[in-house]
Every structure is written in structure tokens, then in C-alpha cells.
Design a binder for these strands. Structure first.
Lengths: 245, 245
DNA sequence: GAACCGACAACTGTCAACAATTAATGCCGA
DNA sequence: TCGGCATTAATTGTTGACAGTTGTCGGTTC
């Protein structure tokens, strides 16, 4: 039985269930335990967490607002499915925000932060040589995160990961093309240079293009798939109620 | 007594209360009926809307996620107060997103949409001559909205107004300086030109600067106030629990 | 007069229950 | 055997209630 603060005996209200449940559902989506389109069974989830449906519903409402769940009247909450159009839209937004983050960061980034980014780039080079795609993926994420953090814009720091999480709801995962790692890290180096020289507009342009390059790769994988997959076409059946259970 | 779908007799579940309540609270914040820092009394609000606390809490959770409310353990939900830093951060994000919207819009905007923007500019010119600050304010908002809509990026269309709403939670409202209207509309004209010529990067730059000009004006009013107001300084008491009730 | 203290009221966080609705099951006939 | 149709089971949206916490008010002490 879950208790707000670990397990301190009996119902002292030192924390609310809602954030815990919210994070738990986020985790389940992140790990793929809950996949796009699947229904959230409130009672089952509540039972599994040892609580009642009230807090579960509140957490789901919050996640709906984030864009990880969607609700349907009298049918409850579902893990959202992100269409191709939406995924491409998200790339564009991320590109813009990432550029903004870079412009802001360039003016105020500290030498410590710059050194941190440099180390990440070196580690990524090592991961490329290995080659170790998994750690490259992690390091790459961390690099992006640190750039955003360097902007010192709290709202941006909050917003950017939400967009990334939403993008992860697109049906396919692990879109890192092995061949792209080297060029990607070259872009990182150029970005770091611009930040070092406090070149805000340069950093912004590079960061934006960095994400748009990712979008282009994403588009290429889409085309490859649709060529292989017997062309789902505009009436892609994936958008039907397949996984509603 | 409020009913999900207007008033069709008796508890047919054709709509959920939650979105209604959410919009109602948003409205109350928008009109200033609820002002920053005030506490949301769940029972009172539920009683006033003729429903129970459950849906009210769900709506509050959603609004918390948007950033219009904040929650405090065992004390409930409060209308958020946006600090000066946060307001400035929001300007930066809006600038970036608005620029992105323009870049996207430039490539796909229709002649009908361009004509709509042109008409708004003309109407704003008229409002400046009057001078009618209120209608200028409305028209200006509509211009911004239409640019974002022209981007055809649904997530952006959803996100941008949320940031604007959050910015409205800053303690002062009505920040339109009469003198700035003319230069602001000149910027609109330049933006429209760029969009007409499908000049994405130009439109992006102009739109970004347009918002940043607003940020600069905002900063100037801040400095004016702090000069008049006996300098609140870094220990601004406004951040205390003044309005908790 | 101001700080402290304790009872009381107000309110939040959570739960269990109920009616409305949707999904599942089994029965029936063709 | 397979597709409708009624019946049953599951599930949601909402409610009212309860325990725990915060806030209030008067009295008391220094």
C-alpha cells in the first residue's frame, strides 16, 4: 500500500497522491508499459496503487492537459497517439524554442556550463567510436537539456521536456540513425563554439537547424517505412479504435 | 443548477462538468474576478456552480498544469502570481514561438489570410487615429492570433494563447502605451510584407522583434513604476502571502 | 498591551457508493 | 456456424461523507 510519504505509519498528510500517480503514469508511458491508444482503467490503476479513483482522475486530468492522455466522454482516459502531422509540428516548435534557448543562453552561460557541454561532446565522440548508440542517445538528451537549462528561463526549462515527451508518443521510437550521430555531434561542436563566443543569433540559428535536421531524418524514416509498409496512406487505420480494449 | 449540456431535464451524461468549470475559472481570471494570489475555495465554487467538489478539483488540476493555478499541500489551489522574472521569461518564449509561427506561415499563408491581416492593420490605423485604445488592443490580439493560426501548427495554436494567458497573471494589466501603437502597427505592416513575399526568415525576425519590442516597453513601465513606488527592491513584499484569505 | 495557548470552525485530501453509460456475454434464430 | 438482440458485467462521472490539517477567536499570562 502506497502512502504519500513512503510509509510513515498511517495517513499523515505530508504529500498528495496526485503528483506521485502522475509521475507513475508518465513513467509507464516512458517505458512503453503503456503504449499509445491504450485505455487507462481507473479502478485497476487505483487498486494497484492502493488508493481510490479520485486522485487517479486528478492525475489523469493533469496529464491530459500536458498532452500525454486524452479523454473521451463516458469512456475515460486514453494514452494519446501522436499523428505524423503532430509529430512534425512538434519538431517545428522544438526547433524554435531550442533556438530561443540558445540565444538566451549565449548571453549568460558560465564557463562551468560550457565545460560541461564540452565534456558531453567528448563523451559522445567516444560513444560514436564504440559504437554505443544507447549512451549516445542519453548523452545527446543531456546535451540538449543542459543548453535549455543554460537559458535560465524557467518556463522554457519546464516546457521543452514536455514537448519531447509528447513527441515520444509517436508510434515508432528510437529514431536515431547510426549514420547521423557523427554529423549530429559536429553540429554540437559548432553550437558550443557559438555559445563560447556569446554569439546569440548564431547559436539560435545552429540550434534551430540542429532540430530541423532531426526532423528531416525523421521524415526520411517515414518515407522509408511507408515505402515498405504497403503505404498506409491518408486513411491510416492506426487512427481507428484498434487498441481501446 | 448547472447541467453538463445546458439543461436537458435530468443527469444525462452528454458532457463532463470539468471542461465547463475549467473555462469558468479561466473566465473569472480573465475578467479579474479572480486575481493573482487569491485562494480557490472548492466548496464555495462547487456550491455556486451547483455541483460537487470532485469535478472542481479535476478542473483545478488541469489549470495548475497550464500554469494558471498553483497548489499548496493542505491549503488548496491559488491563482498564480507571475513574478517579473517569469513575465520576462514568457516574453522571450512568446518571441521565439511567434517567430516560428511566422516562418511556418510565410510558406503556406493564403491570399485570403493575407487580406484578413491587411484589414486588421487598416482597422488598427483607424483605432490609432480615433484614438481608441481598447479596440486597438482587441485588433492587435486578433492580428497575433491570425498569424499563429496561419502557421497551421495545431500545437502552436494551442500553446501560444496559454502563454499569453499566463502573462496576464502579472500583477499589472493594460500595458499598452498610447505612444507605442503607431510604431507597433508599422511593425505589423513590415510583417505583412514579409509574409506576402513568403520571406520566412524575414517574417520570423520581424515577429520576434515585435514581441521583444513589447518586452522592452514592459521593462520601461517596470522601471517607471519602481521609481515611483518607493522601490520594492529584491525583497518585494508582494510575494508574501498577502491575499491568501 | 502583546505573545501564547487551546478549543472551535473551515477547508482540504481521500474514500466509498450510486446512477448513467459502455463493453461483454450468452441466447436465439436463420 | 454466424450474425443480431437482450441481459449482465464493467467502467465512468459524480456525489456525499470522513479524517486530518490549517486558520480563527477568545481567554490567559507575562
Amino acid at each position: 500500500m502506497l502512502r504519500p510519504a513512503a510509509n510513515p505509519a498511517r495517513t499523515p498528510r505530508t504529500a498528495s497522491f496526485v503528483p506521485l500517480i502522475q509521475r507513475e503514469i508518465e513513467r509507464m508511458i516512458g517505458t512503453g508499459e503503456l503504449t499509445g491508444g491504450t485505455r487507462i482503467n481507473e479502478s485497476t490503476l487505483a487498486l494497484r496503487l492502493g488508493i481510490s479513483r479520485g486522485p487517479v482522475r486528478e492525475a489523469c486530468r493533469a496529464l491530459e492537459q500536458i498532452g500525454l492522455l486524452r479523454s473521451e466522454l463516458n469512456r475515460g482516459f486514453f494514452v494519446r497517439e501522436v499523428s505524423t502531422k503532430e509529430a512534425l509540428d512538434l519538431y517545428d516548435i522544438r526547433a524554435g524554442l531550442f533556438g530561443t534557448a540558445g540565444r538566451l543562453a549565449a548571453a549568460i552561460i558560465t564557463t562551468v556550463q560550457l565545460r560541461g557541454l564540452g565534456e558531453l561532446i567528448a563523451q559522445m565522440d567516444a560513444a560514436i567510436e564504440a559504437p554505443d548508440i544507447a549512451t549516445f542517445y542519453t548523452l545527446n538528451n543531456e546535451f540538449h537539456r543542459q543548453v535549455v537549462v543554460a537559458s535560465d528561463n524557467d518556463k522554457l526549462i519546464e516546457l521543452y521536456p514536455l514537448l519531447e515527451a509528447e513527441l515520444h508518443l509517436f508510434r515508432r521510437r528510437g529514431l536515431v540513425l547510426p549514420g547521423s550521430m557523427r554529423t549530429s555531434n559536429d553540429e554540437h561542436k559548432a553550437i558550443l563554439d557559438a555559445l563560447r563566443q556569446s554569439d546569440g543569433t548564431g547559436a539560435a540559428r545552429l540550434l534551430e537547424r540542429h532540430i530541423l535536421a532531426g526532423k528531416a531524418r525523421f521524415l526520411r524514416t517515414l518515407e522509408d517505412d511507408s515505402a515498405t509498409e504497403a503505404r498506409p496512406g491518408p486513411l491510416d487505420p492506426r487512427h481507428s479504435r484498434s487498441k481501446d480494449r
